[in-house]
Amino acid sequence: MTVSYENSKAVFQGIKAAGVTSLSAMPETWLGLLLHQAEKDPDVTLIQVAKEEEAIGIAAGAYFAGERHVLLMQNHGFLAAINGIVSLAQLYSVPLCMLIAFRGHWGEPYPWHTRGGLVTEGVLRALGIPFEYARDPLTVGRQIHEAYTLSQSSLSPVALLLTRDLMED
């Protein structure tokens, strides 16, 4: 299985169409192709972090600055960022629009991804974070826009799970 170039492009175009001008990311395989596009785009500021929890702080800074910001991470990175999500974003009513590569779920061949994959939805529910699944390149752009819109109106974290159907050919 390889990462879908066309669908990575669709996700990046969706991010751009949502008016997003700033991205924070921890690179991972499924996100690689779209991050390459972000790197080449002069209208997008891409901030690569050392660990995902940092991105929660950077996203809060971007929000205070009035910048339209989206976070890109793997679900294991989401798990690593939980205290920042709870004790910065939720505590201070700071919106987060998180696009999360949903590894370790349906069709996952790699054992090391599976434990994180199996708990991701439960953790999102426990945190009260609304989430949706992105499976189709034709609708992912609309879903990104909707996720961003809800994060801003609810002043809360919102997650869009980028599934295997979307990210692999």
């Binding site: 924070s24 901030i47 972090v49 800074g61 971007a62 600055a65 920042g84 505590l91």
Partner: peptide, 22 residues
């Protein structure tokens, strides 16, 4: 002034996000 009363470690990251966008 913004006081980050929890989320230890992230004040620097907030500062970085502010500085880069402003």
């Amino acid at each position: 002034f913004f006081y980050l009363q929890h989320a230890m470690g992230l004040a620097s990251s907030i500062g970085l996000g502010l500085a880069m966008h402003l």
